[in-house]
Design a protein around this nucleic acid. Structure first.
Lengths: 205, 205
DNA sequence: ACGGTTCTCTACCAAATGGTAGACAATCTC
DNA sequence: GAGATTGTCTACCATTTGGTAGAGAACCGT
């Protein structure tokens, strides 16, 4: 009898499949709006299999967040390393790099949007992962400014502005639609290009 | 015996107090994360009094959204009318006008962030309210561009960019904090000023 | 062959949630 | 003053939720 249609493996991929589905669901609909049952149904397992891999919903959320932070870090660091040397070109490359996963998987940045719903202190671990990334970017901007290759300004503010814009664009298509735009008319690619040309105009020395 | 400590009034202000509390709670923590019990407790009434004024949770959400759209419309239209004549100054005035309620009541823009969680079609009514506002702004930008007082560009993209940035800044302080910034270091006012100076640099003819 | 480990499942449970039924008090209308 | 209206409440309910208990199948090392 095929009660266990999925033959148990010593090395099961269930954990990764749960993480993937949970990332998408949490990122698009929010931690509180997604139940463990829904995630389990999406993955195609029973809820209790899910609770075997993650002791509680909070544990699952934590794992999803750490996973997301690591993924973002890899993408951004790779872009910084491989980008062209001129600061404006490099900045554009990084923005493109962040936009690509943000568009393919809006849930990634959507998760950041969810942070404010966590109990206080639950996101402390994320700071350890993401803060160095931001600090590095700030240091780089400052260096370029002092070398006269970028207009003077507060690096922190620039980074915050870029983050807010990317997050706002990538995670709120519905809000944009409601005020009267369809995705086709606006388009994430167009918005990305507009953002980069804005930055070029504002940061050129 | 004071079982009804609040003397019933023919004209009760309970409805408005519910709307106010619901706006704040929904906007900061999300539709699904806030229960009717919590709203009722915040207002200081029983849940059933709440259901007397709004037939269901969906009804309450709908009312909160319409209320928010009307409030935003008033603010923006007033700013457009009273602003100085030079386009860049006027644009800055409008941004300041949107930022003020956005900072005082982050829930206002936070509600827009929540739209993607509504069942399809539930936000149609909002489009009727907000779309004219956006259309008007777009027409105005286009006119100024044709008059040569702003650099050429796609008005829709500019508006979307401004909206995304304001919304991202005003509604995600927690996300900004997690990557390593405190509100004190960054500050919404600084971010607003940075945004307007960016726009000036990018849109000056 | 066999005992332990890994993995998934069915069967429950206590708490919270959105919502209903209806009693009861204050006020208005006549 | 009588009856309808308005507004608030207590009591209750069905469903959903996160989580527990524990059985059983497939695989491992010996």
């Amino acid at each position: 009898m095929a009660r266990h249609s999925l033959a148990p493996n010593r090395r099961s991929d269930t954990r990764e499949r749960i993480l993937e589905s949970a990332t998408i669901l949490f990122g698009t609909r929010g931690f509180d709006s997604v139940s463990l049952d829904q995630i389990a149904a999406e993955v195609g397992v029973a809820k209790q299999s899910l609770l075997y891999w993650f002791a509680s919903k909070d544990d699952l959320i934590q794992a999803v967040l750490v996973n997301m932070a690591a993924e973002l870090t890899v993408v951004v660091e790779a872009a910084i390393r491989s980008a062209p040397d001129m600061p404006l070109d490099r900045l554009e490359a990084v923005i493109h790099a962040v936009f690509r996963p943000a568009v393919r998987r809006p849930a990634l940045l959507g998760l950041l949007r969810e942070l404010s719903r966590l109990p206080t202190g639950a996101a402390e671990h994320l700071t350890e992962i993401l803060n160095p990334l931001v600090t590095r970017a700030g240091t780089w901007l400052r260096t370029e400014m002092q070398a006269g290759r970028l207009r003077q300004g507060d690096p922190s503010l620039i980074i915050a502005l870029v983050y807010a814009t990317v997050a706002g664009i990538a995670t709120e298509p519905e809000a944009l639609r409601v005020v009267g735009w369809s995705q086709d008319v606006i388009g994430l690619r167009k918005l990305r290009n507009e953002l980069t040309s804005f930055l070029r105009a504002a940061l050129a020395p």
